[in-house]
Design a protein around this nucleic acid. Sequence first.
DNA 1: TTTATTAGTGTTAATTTTACACTAAGCAAA
DNA 2: TTTGCTTAGTGTAAAATTAACACTAATAAA
Lengths: 248, 248
Amino acid sequence: MKTQVIPNLSVDCVIFGFDGLELNVLLKERTLKDDKGNFIINDHTLTGHHVLKGETAEQAAQRILKDVTGFDNIFLNQFHTFSETDRLSSPKDQIWIKYLKQNTGLNIADHVISIAFYALVDTKKFRPDQQHQNVAWYPVKNIPELGFDHKRIMEKALESLRYHAKHEPIVFELLPEKFTLTELQNAIEAIFDIKLDKRNFRRKIQQVKYIIPLDEKQHGVAHKPANLFIFSWDVYERTKKEKLILPF
Amino acid sequence: MKTQVIPNLSVDCVIFGFDGLELNVLLKERTLKDDKGNFIINDHTLTGHHVLKGETAEQAAQRILKDVTGFDNIFLNQFHTFSETDRLSSPKDQIWIKYLKQNTGLNIADHVISIAFYALVDTKKFRPDQQHQNVAWYPVKNIPELGFDHKRIMEKALESLRYHAKHEPIVFELLPEKFTLTELQNAIEAIFDIKLDKRNFRRKIQQVKYIIPLDEKQHGVAHKPANLFIFSWDVYERTKKEKLILPF
DNA sequence: TTTATTAGTGTTAATTTTACACTAAGCAAA
DNA sequence: TTTGCTTAGTGTAAAATTAACACTAATAAA
Protein backbone atom coordinates (compact mmCIF):
# COMPACT_ATOMS: atom_id res chain seq x y z
CA MET A 1 0.00 0.00 0.00
CA LYS A 2 1.36 3.33 -1.12
CA THR A 3 1.65 6.24 1.27
CA GLN A 4 -0.74 8.90 0.14
CA VAL A 5 -0.49 12.63 0.52
CA ILE A 6 -3.31 14.81 1.77
CA PRO A 7 -3.61 17.13 -1.22
CA ASN A 8 -4.69 20.26 0.65
CA LEU A 9 -2.35 20.06 3.67
CA SER A 10 1.35 20.79 3.76
CA VAL A 11 4.03 21.53 6.31
CA ASP A 12 6.80 24.09 5.86
CA CYS A 13 9.92 24.14 8.02
CA VAL A 14 12.00 27.23 8.65
CA ILE A 15 15.28 25.68 9.74
CA PHE A 16 17.41 28.16 11.67
CA GLY A 17 21.08 27.47 12.21
CA PHE A 18 23.73 29.34 14.14
CA ASP A 19 27.35 29.17 13.06
CA GLY A 20 28.86 30.98 16.03
CA LEU A 21 28.43 34.35 14.42
CA GLU A 22 25.29 34.68 12.36
CA LEU A 23 21.77 33.30 12.29
CA ASN A 24 21.12 31.33 9.11
CA VAL A 25 18.20 29.66 7.37
CA LEU A 26 18.33 26.52 5.30
CA LEU A 27 16.86 27.08 1.84
CA LYS A 28 16.29 24.80 -1.11
CA GLU A 29 17.10 25.75 -4.67
CA ARG A 30 14.17 25.71 -7.06
CA THR A 31 15.19 25.76 -10.73
CA LEU A 32 13.46 24.93 -13.96
CA LYS A 33 14.84 25.41 -17.47
CA ASP A 34 13.14 25.63 -20.84
CA ASP A 35 14.20 23.65 -23.94
CA LYS A 36 17.03 26.05 -24.69
CA GLY A 37 18.44 25.81 -21.23
CA ASN A 38 17.24 29.22 -20.06
CA PHE A 39 15.91 29.50 -16.56
CA ILE A 40 12.15 29.69 -16.25
CA ILE A 41 12.42 29.48 -12.49
CA ASN A 42 15.53 30.17 -10.45
CA ASP A 43 14.81 30.97 -6.85
CA HIS A 44 14.60 29.34 -3.43
CA THR A 45 12.01 27.86 -1.11
CA LEU A 46 11.76 26.66 2.45
CA THR A 47 11.88 22.95 3.04
CA GLY A 48 8.40 21.50 3.07
CA HIS A 49 6.18 18.65 1.99
CA HIS A 50 2.61 17.48 2.13
CA VAL A 51 1.14 15.81 5.16
CA LEU A 52 0.64 12.10 4.57
CA LYS A 53 -2.50 10.18 5.43
CA GLY A 54 -2.43 9.05 9.03
CA GLU A 55 0.22 11.55 9.99
CA THR A 56 0.08 14.56 12.30
CA ALA A 57 1.59 17.87 11.25
CA GLU A 58 4.32 17.37 13.87
CA GLN A 59 5.19 13.97 12.43
CA ALA A 60 5.29 15.41 8.94
CA ALA A 61 7.66 18.15 10.14
CA GLN A 62 9.97 15.60 11.81
CA ARG A 63 9.92 13.52 8.63
CA ILE A 64 10.89 16.52 6.53
CA LEU A 65 13.75 17.40 8.88
CA LYS A 66 14.99 13.84 8.80
CA ASP A 67 14.82 13.80 4.98
CA VAL A 68 16.69 17.06 4.64
CA THR A 69 19.31 16.82 7.38
CA GLY A 70 19.43 13.16 8.28
CA PHE A 71 18.82 13.97 11.95
CA ASP A 72 16.02 12.95 14.28
CA ASN A 73 15.00 14.86 17.36
CA ILE A 74 15.58 18.33 16.10
CA PHE A 75 13.98 21.09 18.16
CA LEU A 76 10.72 22.06 16.45
CA ASN A 77 8.07 24.60 17.18
CA GLN A 78 4.79 25.05 15.35
CA PHE A 79 4.22 28.78 14.99
CA HIS A 80 1.46 29.52 12.46
CA THR A 81 -0.84 28.07 9.85
CA PHE A 82 -1.06 29.83 6.51
CA SER A 83 -4.35 29.49 4.70
CA GLU A 84 -4.54 32.40 2.26
CA THR A 85 -6.43 31.27 -0.81
CA ASP A 86 -3.86 32.78 -3.17
CA ARG A 87 -0.79 31.27 -1.49
CA LEU A 88 0.25 29.34 -4.60
CA SER A 89 -1.28 31.43 -7.32
CA SER A 90 1.67 33.40 -8.70
CA PRO A 91 2.54 32.42 -12.31
CA LYS A 92 5.91 30.97 -11.31
CA ASP A 93 4.40 28.86 -8.57
CA GLN A 94 1.69 27.59 -10.92
CA ILE A 95 4.32 26.55 -13.47
CA TRP A 96 6.22 24.75 -10.72
CA ILE A 97 3.12 22.92 -9.50
CA LYS A 98 2.31 21.80 -13.03
CA TYR A 99 5.90 20.61 -13.46
CA LEU A 100 5.74 18.64 -10.21
CA LYS A 101 2.50 16.98 -11.28
CA GLN A 102 3.93 15.95 -14.66
CA ASN A 103 7.24 14.74 -13.31
CA THR A 104 6.51 13.29 -9.90
CA GLY A 105 2.75 12.70 -10.03
CA LEU A 106 2.36 14.88 -6.92
CA ASN A 107 -1.15 16.23 -6.89
CA ILE A 108 -1.53 19.58 -5.21
CA ALA A 109 -4.92 21.10 -4.42
CA ASP A 110 -5.78 24.63 -5.50
CA HIS A 111 -6.08 25.73 -1.92
CA VAL A 112 -3.30 24.29 0.21
CA ILE A 113 -3.11 25.10 3.91
CA SER A 114 0.40 25.05 5.28
CA ILE A 115 1.23 24.41 8.91
CA ALA A 116 4.56 26.09 9.56
CA PHE A 117 7.29 25.12 12.01
CA TYR A 118 10.63 26.52 12.85
CA ALA A 119 13.54 24.28 13.78
CA LEU A 120 16.75 25.15 15.60
CA VAL A 121 20.05 23.45 14.88
CA ASP A 122 23.72 24.00 15.44
CA THR A 123 25.03 24.80 11.96
CA LYS A 124 28.24 22.93 12.65
CA LYS A 125 26.24 19.73 13.09
CA PHE A 126 24.80 19.93 9.62
CA ARG A 127 26.90 21.08 6.69
CA PRO A 128 24.95 20.47 3.50
CA ASP A 129 26.84 19.07 0.50
CA GLN A 130 25.91 17.79 -2.95
CA GLN A 131 24.00 14.87 -1.46
CA HIS A 132 21.67 17.20 0.32
CA GLN A 133 18.93 18.05 -2.15
CA ASN A 134 20.38 21.42 -3.13
CA VAL A 135 19.95 22.99 0.24
CA ALA A 136 22.27 25.61 1.69
CA TRP A 137 22.53 28.03 4.60
CA TYR A 138 21.71 31.68 4.00
CA PRO A 139 22.19 34.44 6.56
CA VAL A 140 18.89 35.72 7.88
CA LYS A 141 20.05 39.25 7.13
CA ASN A 142 20.49 38.44 3.46
CA ILE A 143 17.77 36.15 2.19
CA PRO A 144 17.43 35.59 -1.58
CA GLU A 145 14.14 35.68 -3.47
CA LEU A 146 11.73 33.03 -2.20
CA GLY A 147 8.91 31.22 -3.98
CA PHE A 148 5.30 30.82 -2.85
CA ASP A 149 4.54 32.87 0.28
CA HIS A 150 7.78 31.72 1.88
CA LYS A 151 9.13 35.21 2.47
CA ARG A 152 6.15 35.90 4.66
CA ILE A 153 6.47 32.54 6.44
CA MET A 154 10.15 33.20 7.03
CA GLU A 155 9.46 36.64 8.55
CA LYS A 156 6.77 35.29 10.79
CA ALA A 157 9.12 32.48 11.87
CA LEU A 158 11.79 34.96 12.90
CA GLU A 159 9.27 37.05 14.80
CA SER A 160 8.05 33.93 16.50
CA LEU A 161 11.54 32.70 17.34
CA ARG A 162 12.32 36.04 18.99
CA TYR A 163 9.05 36.01 20.86
CA HIS A 164 9.72 32.50 22.09
CA ALA A 165 13.38 33.03 22.90
CA LYS A 166 12.46 35.84 25.27
CA HIS A 167 10.56 33.46 27.51
CA GLU A 168 12.29 30.15 27.37
CA PRO A 169 15.89 29.07 27.15
CA ILE A 170 15.68 27.79 23.58
CA VAL A 171 18.89 29.55 22.46
CA PHE A 172 20.75 26.50 23.61
CA GLU A 173 19.20 24.51 20.76
CA LEU A 174 21.36 26.59 18.43
CA LEU A 175 24.58 25.79 20.28
CA PRO A 176 26.76 22.72 20.64
CA GLU A 177 26.26 20.83 23.88
CA LYS A 178 29.36 22.42 25.36
CA PHE A 179 29.59 26.11 24.60
CA THR A 180 31.43 29.22 25.72
CA LEU A 181 29.75 32.28 27.16
CA THR A 182 30.83 34.28 24.15
CA GLU A 183 29.06 31.80 21.87
CA LEU A 184 25.95 32.09 23.97
CA GLN A 185 26.10 35.86 23.89
CA ASN A 186 26.69 35.86 20.13
CA ALA A 187 23.69 33.59 19.59
CA ILE A 188 21.42 35.89 21.57
CA GLU A 189 22.79 38.92 19.77
CA ALA A 190 22.20 37.20 16.42
CA ILE A 191 18.61 36.24 17.23
CA PHE A 192 17.61 39.69 18.42
CA ASP A 193 20.01 41.73 16.30
CA ILE A 194 21.32 43.62 19.31
CA LYS A 195 24.56 44.17 21.22
CA LEU A 196 24.94 43.28 24.90
CA ASP A 197 27.50 44.41 27.46
CA LYS A 198 29.88 41.53 28.08
CA ARG A 199 30.37 42.10 31.79
CA ASN A 200 26.71 42.62 32.61
CA PHE A 201 25.81 39.59 30.51
CA ARG A 202 28.27 37.37 32.34
CA ARG A 203 27.17 38.56 35.76
CA LYS A 204 23.59 37.67 34.81
CA ILE A 205 24.56 34.22 33.64
CA GLN A 206 26.50 33.52 36.84
CA GLN A 207 23.33 34.00 38.89
CA VAL A 208 21.57 31.30 36.91
CA LYS A 209 21.96 27.76 38.17
CA TYR A 210 21.07 25.91 34.98
CA ILE A 211 24.01 27.22 32.98
CA ILE A 212 26.72 25.09 34.48
CA PRO A 213 30.46 25.73 34.15
CA LEU A 214 32.58 22.69 33.27
CA ASP A 215 36.18 22.03 34.31
CA GLU A 216 37.08 22.16 30.68
CA LYS A 217 38.43 24.71 28.25
CA GLN A 218 38.43 25.31 24.53
CA HIS A 219 41.32 23.75 22.58
CA GLY A 220 43.23 24.91 19.56
CA VAL A 221 42.20 28.53 19.59
CA ALA A 222 44.84 31.21 19.01
CA HIS A 223 43.95 33.16 22.11
CA LYS A 224 43.09 32.62 25.75
CA PRO A 225 40.85 29.55 25.74
CA ALA A 226 37.36 30.06 27.12
CA ASN A 227 35.71 27.95 29.77
CA LEU A 228 32.99 25.60 28.52
CA PHE A 229 29.44 25.45 29.89
CA ILE A 230 26.44 23.19 29.53
CA PHE A 231 22.74 23.95 29.83
CA SER A 232 20.59 21.74 32.03
CA TRP A 233 16.90 21.70 31.09
CA ASP A 234 16.34 19.67 34.19
CA VAL A 235 17.75 22.27 36.54
CA TYR A 236 15.93 24.95 34.57
CA GLU A 237 12.55 23.29 35.09
CA ARG A 238 13.16 22.99 38.79
CA THR A 239 14.53 26.45 39.48
CA LYS A 240 12.74 28.72 37.04
CA LYS A 241 10.74 31.48 38.59
CA GLU A 242 8.10 33.07 36.43
CA LYS A 243 8.19 36.74 37.03
CA LEU A 244 5.43 38.69 35.40
CA ILE A 245 6.50 41.74 33.46
CA LEU A 246 3.62 43.49 31.82
CA PRO A 247 3.97 45.36 28.55
CA PHE A 248 3.46 48.62 30.43
CA MET B 1 -24.31 27.46 -6.05
CA LYS B 2 -24.11 26.04 -2.56
CA THR B 3 -21.27 26.90 -0.22
CA GLN B 4 -19.24 23.78 0.37
CA VAL B 5 -17.26 22.77 3.41
CA ILE B 6 -13.71 21.47 3.24
CA PRO B 7 -14.23 18.12 4.97
CA ASN B 8 -10.83 17.85 6.63
CA LEU B 9 -10.39 21.44 7.85
CA SER B 10 -12.10 23.11 10.74
CA VAL B 11 -11.68 26.16 12.91
CA ASP B 12 -12.28 26.28 16.67
CA CYS B 13 -12.70 29.52 18.58
CA VAL B 14 -11.95 29.89 22.26
CA ILE B 15 -13.96 33.00 23.08
CA PHE B 16 -12.72 34.64 26.27
CA GLY B 17 -14.88 37.20 28.04
CA PHE B 18 -14.24 39.35 31.08
CA ASP B 19 -17.15 40.43 33.27
CA GLY B 20 -15.22 42.82 35.50
CA LEU B 21 -14.29 40.08 37.92
CA GLU B 22 -13.60 36.75 36.28
CA LEU B 23 -12.27 35.42 33.00
CA ASN B 24 -14.91 33.36 31.18
CA VAL B 25 -15.15 31.16 28.11
CA LEU B 26 -18.14 30.82 25.83
CA LEU B 27 -19.19 27.18 25.47
CA LYS B 28 -21.89 25.49 23.47
CA GLU B 29 -24.14 22.80 24.85
CA ARG B 30 -23.97 19.46 23.06
CA THR B 31 -26.88 17.14 23.86
CA LEU B 32 -28.34 14.07 22.24
CA LYS B 33 -31.15 11.88 23.61
CA ASP B 34 -32.18 8.35 22.83
CA ASP B 35 -35.77 7.24 22.07
CA LYS B 36 -36.70 7.20 25.74
CA GLY B 37 -35.42 10.71 26.32
CA ASN B 38 -32.28 9.69 28.16
CA PHE B 39 -29.12 11.61 27.41
CA ILE B 40 -26.63 9.83 25.20
CA ILE B 41 -24.50 12.95 25.06
CA ASN B 42 -24.67 15.86 27.48
CA ASP B 43 -21.55 17.96 27.53
CA HIS B 44 -20.07 21.10 26.00
CA THR B 45 -17.83 22.13 23.13
CA LEU B 46 -16.03 25.21 21.92
CA THR B 47 -17.62 27.13 19.10
CA GLY B 48 -16.30 25.91 15.78
CA HIS B 49 -17.13 25.03 12.22
CA HIS B 50 -15.57 23.76 9.05
CA VAL B 51 -13.64 25.98 6.70
CA LEU B 52 -15.62 26.68 3.54
CA LYS B 53 -14.22 26.47 0.03
CA GLY B 54 -12.56 29.73 -0.95
CA GLU B 55 -12.22 30.85 2.64
CA THR B 56 -9.13 31.43 4.79
CA ALA B 57 -8.98 30.13 8.36
CA GLU B 58 -9.17 33.72 9.59
CA GLN B 59 -12.32 34.35 7.58
CA ALA B 60 -13.87 31.15 8.88
CA ALA B 61 -13.11 32.26 12.43
CA GLN B 62 -14.67 35.68 11.89
CA ARG B 63 -17.72 34.01 10.34
CA ILE B 64 -18.09 31.73 13.37
CA LEU B 65 -17.82 34.67 15.76
CA LYS B 66 -20.41 36.60 13.79
CA ASP B 67 -22.74 33.59 13.79
CA VAL B 68 -22.40 33.05 17.51
CA THR B 69 -22.30 36.59 18.87
CA GLY B 70 -23.66 38.74 16.07
CA PHE B 71 -20.57 40.94 16.17
CA ASP B 72 -17.98 41.70 13.54
CA ASN B 73 -14.45 42.83 14.23
CA ILE B 74 -13.83 40.84 17.34
CA PHE B 75 -10.18 40.56 18.39
CA LEU B 76 -8.87 37.23 17.16
CA ASN B 77 -5.58 35.47 17.42
CA GLN B 78 -4.59 32.21 15.78
CA PHE B 79 -2.59 30.22 18.30
CA HIS B 80 -2.22 26.59 17.24
CA THR B 81 -3.27 23.94 14.75
CA PHE B 82 -4.34 20.60 16.11
CA SER B 83 -3.76 17.65 13.84
CA GLU B 84 -3.72 14.57 16.07
CA THR B 85 -5.14 11.64 14.11
CA ASP B 86 -7.39 10.58 16.98
CA ARG B 87 -8.86 14.00 17.70
CA LEU B 88 -12.43 12.88 16.98
CA SER B 89 -12.22 9.20 17.73
CA SER B 90 -13.81 8.90 21.17
CA PRO B 91 -17.11 6.91 21.09
CA LYS B 92 -19.17 9.97 22.07
CA ASP B 93 -17.62 12.10 19.38
CA GLN B 94 -18.18 9.40 16.77
CA ILE B 95 -21.85 9.17 17.72
CA TRP B 96 -22.13 12.93 17.44
CA ILE B 97 -20.48 13.01 14.01
CA LYS B 98 -22.83 10.28 12.76
CA TYR B 99 -25.78 12.22 14.13
CA LEU B 100 -24.65 15.39 12.38
CA LYS B 101 -24.27 13.55 9.10
CA GLN B 102 -27.77 12.05 9.31
CA ASN B 103 -29.47 15.23 10.44
CA THR B 104 -27.59 18.03 8.72
CA GLY B 105 -25.79 16.26 5.90
CA LEU B 106 -22.50 17.63 7.22
CA ASN B 107 -19.74 15.35 6.04
CA ILE B 108 -16.73 15.19 8.34
CA ALA B 109 -13.49 13.50 7.32
CA ASP B 110 -11.87 10.88 9.55
CA HIS B 111 -8.86 13.07 10.09
CA VAL B 112 -9.86 16.68 10.66
CA ILE B 113 -7.22 19.32 11.26
CA SER B 114 -8.43 22.20 13.39
CA ILE B 115 -6.93 25.66 13.27
CA ALA B 116 -7.61 27.23 16.65
CA PHE B 117 -8.13 30.88 17.52
CA TYR B 118 -8.85 32.71 20.69
CA ALA B 119 -11.09 35.76 20.75
CA LEU B 120 -11.35 38.48 23.38
CA VAL B 121 -14.61 40.25 24.17
CA ASP B 122 -16.13 42.36 26.89
CA THR B 123 -18.70 40.04 28.48
CA LYS B 124 -21.07 42.94 29.02
CA LYS B 125 -21.26 43.45 25.27
CA PHE B 126 -22.52 39.96 24.64
CA ARG B 127 -24.99 38.35 26.98
CA PRO B 128 -26.20 35.11 25.41
CA ASP B 129 -29.92 34.31 25.65
CA GLN B 130 -32.22 31.66 24.20
CA GLN B 131 -31.63 32.93 20.68
CA HIS B 132 -27.96 32.24 20.94
CA GLN B 133 -27.52 28.60 19.96
CA ASN B 134 -27.28 27.30 23.51
CA VAL B 135 -24.07 29.07 24.32
CA ALA B 136 -23.19 30.40 27.76
CA TRP B 137 -20.26 31.85 29.68
CA TYR B 138 -18.31 29.60 32.02
CA PRO B 139 -15.58 30.78 34.36
CA VAL B 140 -12.16 29.61 33.23
CA LYS B 141 -11.55 28.30 36.73
CA ASN B 142 -14.54 26.00 36.52
CA ILE B 143 -14.89 24.49 33.06
CA PRO B 144 -17.36 21.60 32.58
CA GLU B 145 -16.61 18.43 30.61
CA LEU B 146 -15.74 19.19 27.00
CA GLY B 147 -16.14 17.07 23.89
CA PHE B 148 -13.52 16.23 21.26
CA ASP B 149 -10.05 17.50 22.25
CA HIS B 150 -11.49 20.81 23.33
CA LYS B 151 -10.14 20.64 26.87
CA ARG B 152 -6.65 20.55 25.45
CA ILE B 153 -7.42 23.34 22.98
CA MET B 154 -8.86 25.43 25.78
CA GLU B 155 -5.77 24.96 27.96
CA LYS B 156 -3.43 25.84 25.12
CA ALA B 157 -5.56 28.91 24.40
CA LEU B 158 -5.20 30.13 27.95
CA GLU B 159 -1.48 29.53 27.92
CA SER B 160 -1.26 31.39 24.67
CA LEU B 161 -3.39 34.29 25.90
CA ARG B 162 -1.11 34.70 28.90
CA TYR B 163 1.97 34.49 26.76
CA HIS B 164 0.59 37.09 24.40
CA ALA B 165 -0.78 39.39 27.10
CA LYS B 166 2.69 39.69 28.59
CA HIS B 167 4.02 41.34 25.48
CA GLU B 168 1.25 43.37 23.99
CA PRO B 169 -1.55 45.46 25.42
CA ILE B 170 -4.33 43.09 24.44
CA VAL B 171 -6.01 43.20 27.87
CA PHE B 172 -7.93 46.19 26.63
CA GLU B 173 -9.84 43.95 24.23
CA LEU B 174 -11.53 42.46 27.28
CA LEU B 175 -12.64 45.84 28.63
CA PRO B 176 -15.24 48.39 27.58
CA GLU B 177 -13.86 51.35 25.67
CA LYS B 178 -13.89 53.49 28.80
CA PHE B 179 -12.65 51.64 31.83
CA THR B 180 -11.44 52.27 35.37
CA LEU B 181 -7.99 51.37 36.61
CA THR B 182 -9.52 48.87 38.99
CA GLU B 183 -11.21 47.13 36.04
CA LEU B 184 -7.90 47.03 34.23
CA GLN B 185 -6.13 45.62 37.25
CA ASN B 186 -8.86 43.04 37.76
CA ALA B 187 -8.61 41.94 34.13
CA ILE B 188 -4.86 41.42 34.42
CA GLU B 189 -5.26 39.59 37.71
CA ALA B 190 -7.91 37.36 36.13
CA ILE B 191 -5.79 36.50 33.10
CA PHE B 192 -2.71 35.61 35.10
CA ASP B 193 -4.41 34.43 38.27
CA ILE B 194 -2.32 36.72 40.45
CA LYS B 195 -2.73 39.65 42.83
CA LEU B 196 -1.07 43.02 42.23
CA ASP B 197 -0.37 45.90 44.61
CA LYS B 198 -2.80 48.72 43.84
CA ARG B 199 -0.43 51.61 44.43
CA ASN B 200 2.47 50.13 42.50
CA PHE B 201 0.13 49.17 39.67
CA ARG B 202 -1.23 52.70 39.41
CA ARG B 203 2.19 54.30 39.52
CA LYS B 204 3.22 52.09 36.61
CA ILE B 205 0.13 52.99 34.59
CA GLN B 206 0.70 56.70 35.13
CA GLN B 207 4.09 56.46 33.44
CA VAL B 208 2.48 55.05 30.32
CA LYS B 209 1.26 57.56 27.76
CA TYR B 210 -1.17 55.34 25.91
CA ILE B 211 -3.51 54.81 28.85
CA ILE B 212 -5.21 58.15 28.83
CA PRO B 213 -7.30 59.59 31.70
CA LEU B 214 -10.62 61.14 30.68
CA ASP B 215 -12.40 64.06 32.36
CA GLU B 216 -15.17 61.67 33.19
CA LYS B 217 -16.18 59.53 36.11
CA GLN B 218 -18.24 56.43 36.76
CA HIS B 219 -21.95 57.01 37.43
CA GLY B 220 -24.42 55.24 39.65
CA VAL B 221 -21.97 53.40 41.86
CA ALA B 222 -22.53 53.37 45.63
CA HIS B 223 -19.04 54.56 46.44
CA LYS B 224 -16.50 57.11 45.29
CA PRO B 225 -16.73 57.06 41.50
CA ALA B 226 -13.57 56.14 39.68
CA ASN B 227 -12.00 58.10 36.88
CA LEU B 228 -12.40 56.61 33.40
CA PHE B 229 -9.55 55.88 31.02
CA ILE B 230 -9.16 54.92 27.39
CA PHE B 231 -6.42 52.97 25.64
CA SER B 232 -4.89 54.38 22.49
CA TRP B 233 -3.37 51.79 20.18
CA ASP B 234 -2.11 54.66 18.12
CA VAL B 235 -0.10 56.22 20.92
CA TYR B 236 1.06 52.76 21.94
CA GLU B 237 2.53 52.05 18.50
CA ARG B 238 4.35 55.36 18.50
CA THR B 239 5.75 55.29 22.02
CA LYS B 240 6.41 51.63 22.76
CA LYS B 241 9.95 50.76 23.58
CA GLU B 242 10.92 47.15 23.21
CA LYS B 243 13.02 46.24 26.14
CA LEU B 244 14.64 42.89 25.99
CA ILE B 245 14.34 40.77 29.07
CA LEU B 246 15.90 37.38 28.67
CA PRO B 247 14.60 34.29 30.42
CA PHE B 248 17.74 34.27 32.55
C1' DT C 1 60.11 36.59 22.27
C1' DT C 2 56.86 39.34 20.28
C1' DT C 3 52.30 39.96 18.40
C1' DA C 4 47.53 39.24 17.79
C1' DT C 5 43.35 37.86 19.66
C1' DT C 6 39.77 36.81 22.71
C1' DA C 7 38.72 35.64 27.90
C1' DG C 8 37.71 37.27 32.06
C1' DT C 9 36.87 40.50 35.82
C1' DG C 10 34.52 45.07 39.82
C1' DT C 11 32.71 49.38 41.07
C1' DT C 12 29.63 53.09 41.18
C1' DA C 13 25.54 55.76 40.04
C1' DA C 14 20.95 55.59 38.39
C1' DT C 15 16.78 53.32 38.07
C1' DT C 16 13.25 50.27 39.31
C1' DT C 17 10.82 47.55 42.43
C1' DT C 18 8.72 46.41 46.64
C1' DA C 19 6.17 46.87 50.86
C1' DC C 20 2.89 49.20 53.25
C1' DA C 21 -2.04 52.34 55.43
C1' DC C 22 -4.74 56.15 55.49
C1' DT C 23 -8.13 59.90 53.57
C1' DA C 24 -11.79 61.06 49.91
C1' DA C 25 -16.14 60.72 47.60
C1' DG C 26 -20.37 59.10 46.59
C1' DC C 27 -24.79 56.30 47.71
C1' DA C 28 -28.00 54.20 50.86
C1' DA C 29 -30.18 53.47 55.01
C1' DA C 30 -31.62 55.10 59.31
C1' DT D 1 -29.15 65.15 57.71
C1' DT D 2 -26.32 62.06 59.69
C1' DT D 3 -24.09 57.73 59.73
C1' DG D 4 -22.22 53.84 57.63
C1' DC D 5 -20.63 51.28 53.74
C1' DT D 6 -17.78 50.77 49.93
C1' DT D 7 -14.31 51.54 46.61
C1' DA D 8 -11.01 55.41 44.79
C1' DG D 9 -6.91 57.45 45.19
C1' DT D 10 -2.39 58.72 47.06
C1' DG D 11 3.65 58.84 49.04
C1' DT D 12 7.79 57.27 51.04
C1' DA D 13 11.80 54.75 52.15
C1' DA D 14 14.61 50.56 51.70
C1' DA D 15 16.16 46.98 48.65
C1' DA D 16 17.23 45.13 44.33
C1' DT D 17 18.46 45.56 39.69
C1' DT D 18 20.45 47.65 35.81
C1' DA D 19 23.72 50.29 33.16
C1' DA D 20 28.02 52.19 31.99
C1' DC D 21 32.71 51.58 31.66
C1' DA D 22 38.65 49.59 30.72
C1' DC D 23 42.20 46.84 31.85
C1' DT D 24 44.96 42.21 32.67
C1' DA D 25 45.41 37.08 31.39
C1' DA D 26 46.22 33.21 28.46
C1' DT D 27 47.08 30.96 24.34
C1' DA D 28 48.81 30.13 19.25
C1' DA D 29 51.24 31.90 15.49
C1' DA D 30 54.78 34.49 13.50
